[in-house]
Nucleic acid binder design. Structure first.
Length: 293
DNA sequence: TATTCGTGGCT
DNA sequence: TAGCCAAGAAT
C-alpha cells in the first residue's frame, strides 16, 4: 500500500472534522482564551462529559483570570468538585495569579510564557497556543499519540512516554499553514476521541482507515512494555479523596469524621499532613481541618 | 525516568 | 468483575 501524501491525509482528517466536530463551550468564536485555558486544566486526565458542567460554573463565577485570582484557594478547590486531582484547582488559581501579575490579566499568547505558568506543561501550552490563538504547534496528547502511532507506525498503543520518533512524526505531519495547523491539531485529537478510541475503534467510520498502517497490518496487539495500571483500593490517593470529599461538603472536618472515613491511623495522618503540605487543607484548630480560606 | 496524584463510567 | 481508561504535570 502506498503511503498517502500529507495533503491527502490532511484533507481526509480536516474534512471529517468539519462534519463531525462536537460543539464544545471552549470551542467556537465566543470562547475566550481564559475559557480555553480553564478547559485544558480540567481536561487533564478527565473526560469531557465530566468537565462540561464544572467548566460552565467556573466561567460563570470567574469570567477572567483576575476574578479567580481574587478568591481564596479553598473556593477554587470547592468549585473543582469531583473532577479529581484537586491540585489542578490550586495550580489553575496560581496560574491566574501569575497572569495578573506578569501579563496584565490577559492569558499570554506565547508558548514560552504559557509553559512558565503553574500547571502548564508542554501539552497544555501547545494546546492553548493552538486552540485559543490559532498558532502552529505540535499538540501531542493521548488521543493524537494513539492516532499517529496507529496510522503511521502500525501499532495499537503508543509507548508509555512520548518518544523522539513520535514527535518527529507529528512534526512532519503538521501542516505548514498556521491556521490549518491549528485545525489539524484539534481535528486529530477529536478523531482519537470519537473514532480511533483506545478500546473499540470505529474503523468503519474512520476517514483514514484505508491508509492506516495498524489496520493494514491486521490490527496487531500491543507488544510494548507493560502499561502500568493505577492502583486505587487502599492507596493514599483513595484516602486523600475521602478526606477531600468531606472537606468540600462541610465547612470543616474533625478527627472523628476523618477516622470514620479512613480507619487506618498511620495512613490517615500521613494523608492529612500531605494535604496540608499541598495546600489543599488547613488545620484550623487541633483536630479540625478545612479548605484554605 | 519512574511515581504520584482523583474520580467514575465502561466492558 | 476487575481492570482499563480519560485533552498531564510535577517531582
Amino acid at each position: 500500500m502506498d503511503s498517502p501524501t500529507p495533503g491527502a491525509l490532511h484533507d481526509a482528517v480536516l474534512g471529517w472534522y468539519d462534519d463531525h466536530a462536537r460543539e464544545l463551550p471552549w470551542r467556537g468564536l465566543e470562547a475566550t482564551p481564559w475559557s480555553v485555558m480553564v478547559s485544558e486544566f480540567m481536561l487533564q486526565q478527565t473526560p469531557v462529559v465530566r468537565v462540561l458542567p464544572v467548566h460552565a460554573l467556573w466561567l460563570e463565577r470567574w469570567p477572567t483570570p483576575a476574578d479567580l485570582a481574587a478568591e481564596p484557594t479553598g473556593e477554587a478547590v470547592r468549585m473543582w468538585g469531583r473532577l479529581g486531582y484537586p491540585r489542578r484547582a490550586l495550580r489553575l488559581r496560581a496560574a491566574a495569579t501569575a497572569i495578573v501579575e506578569r501579563h496584565g490579566g490577559e492569558v499570554p499568547t506565547s508558548y514560552d510564557d504559557l509553559l512558565a505558568l503553574p500547571g502548564v506543561g508542554d501539552y497544555t501550552a501547545s494546546a492553548i497556543a493552538s486552540f485559543a490563538f490559532g498558532q502552529r504547534h505540535v499538540v501531542l496528547d493521548t488521543n493524537v499519540r494513539r492516532v499517529l502511532v496507529r496510522a503511521v507506525s502500525g501499532q495499537e498503543f503508543p509507548a508509555p512516554a512520548v518518544t523522539r520518533a513520535e514527535r518527529d512524526v507529528a512534526t512532519a505531519l503538521l501542516p505548514d499553514d498556521e491556521a490549518t495547523a491549528a485545525t489539524w491539531a484539534v481535528a486529530t485529537m477529536e478523531l482519537g476521541a470519537l473514532v480511533c478510541s483506545a478500546r473499540q475503534p470505529s474503523c468503519d467510520a474512520c476517514p483514514i482507515a484505508e491508509v492506516c498502517a495498524w489496520r493494514g497490518a491486521g490490527f496487531p496487539a500491543y507488544d510494548g512494555p507493560p502499561r502500568r495500571g493505577q492502583a486505587w483500593a487502599g492507596t493514599d490517593r483513595q484516602c486523600r479523596g475521602r478526606i477531600m470529599a468531606l472537606a468540600r461538603e462541610q465547612s470543616s472536618v474533625t478527627t472523628a469524621q476523618a477516622e470514620a472515613a479512613w480507619p487506618r491511623a498511620d495512613q490517615r495522618e500521613r494523608c492529612l499532613a500531605g494535604l496540608v503540605d499541598d495546600g489543599l487543607l488547613t488545620q484550623i484548630t487541633p483536630g479540625r481541618w478545612a479548605l484554605p480560606g
